[in-house]
């Protein structure tokens, strides 16, 4: 299953074959992933592919070792992180992440447009109030005022957001299971099913990214 990164009999590094990150590790594109096993696999492959251990090989092999090992590191970095892993899978599926994704944020920044903010409906009220509080806090900072009650209020809102963030991660995992079920079914799984589940994943990721950005804003405002 795993691509032949090195020769099984002589151990020499082979030229990289263009594969996705899952295949690089010889894994099916499942989202529930044994991170400890992935790490073990990463260490094993590093011991074969890393340039330090191929420093005395020919220049061609050294070049392959550099490419293979960068691919290995890129793949490991992406797959071990639950969010990056999900985003990567959606990218493989050809699904574009929306408003809150990194690429969308950068695109908005690059074109100088204001990023479209779609506030999840259940959060509308909370976010509205939080933004008012944050604005007030910034004003206070400017004037040199201190309002402990306000600070406490924002702290509470932050805790609530963090709880929501946790809940979303759990929700994400339920869709992982759905997705993995489709993968396990193999070719039987219909395109419609795949699209339905990937749509759910995108939705959770967007909401999660929105909340994460909010928490970041709150932290920044409280630290300053």
């Amino acid at each position: 299953m795993r691509a032949a990164h090195f020769c099984e009999s002589c151990g020499k590094v082979q030229p990289p074959v263009p594969v996705d990150y899952f295949s690089f590790f010889g894994l099916p594109p499942r989202l529930s992933l044994d991170v400890a096993a992935l790490e073990k696999s990463f260490y094993e492959l590093s011991r074969k592919l890393h340039p330090d251990l191929n420093a005395r090989a020919g220049s061609q092999e050294q070049e392959w070792s550099l490419e293979q090992s960068s691919l290995l590191n890129d793949a490991y970095r992406t797959l071990r992180d639950p969010i990056k892993r999900t985003e990567y899978l959606l990218h493989l599926e050809g699904v574009l992440l929306e408003e809150q994704s990194k690429s969308a944020t950068e695109q908005a920044r690059a074109t100088g447009e204001l990023k479209k903010q779609i506030v999840p409906p259940d959060l509308l009220e909370e976010v509205f109030e939080l933004n008012l509080h944050l604005e007030e806090l910034r004003m206070n900072k400017k004037m040199g005022d201190d309002d402990p009650a306000l600070f406490e209020e924002i702290g509470k809102a932050k805790l609530s957001l963090e709880a929501k963030h946790e809940a979303l991660l759990r929700e994400l995992q339920t869709y992982w299971k759905e997705w993995d079920g489709l993968i396990d079914r193999g070719p039987d799984a219909s395109t419609t099913d795949r699209q339905r589940v990937s749509g759910k994943l995108v939705d959770v990721l967007n909401r999660r990214n929105y909340i994460r950005n909010l928490v970041r804003d709150v932290n920044a405002a409280m630290e300053n």
Partner: peptide, 8 residues
């Protein structure tokens, strides 16, 4: 803090 070699 990306492990090197790394690419993009």
């Amino acid at each position: 803090n990306s492990t090197i070699p790394a690419s993009a």
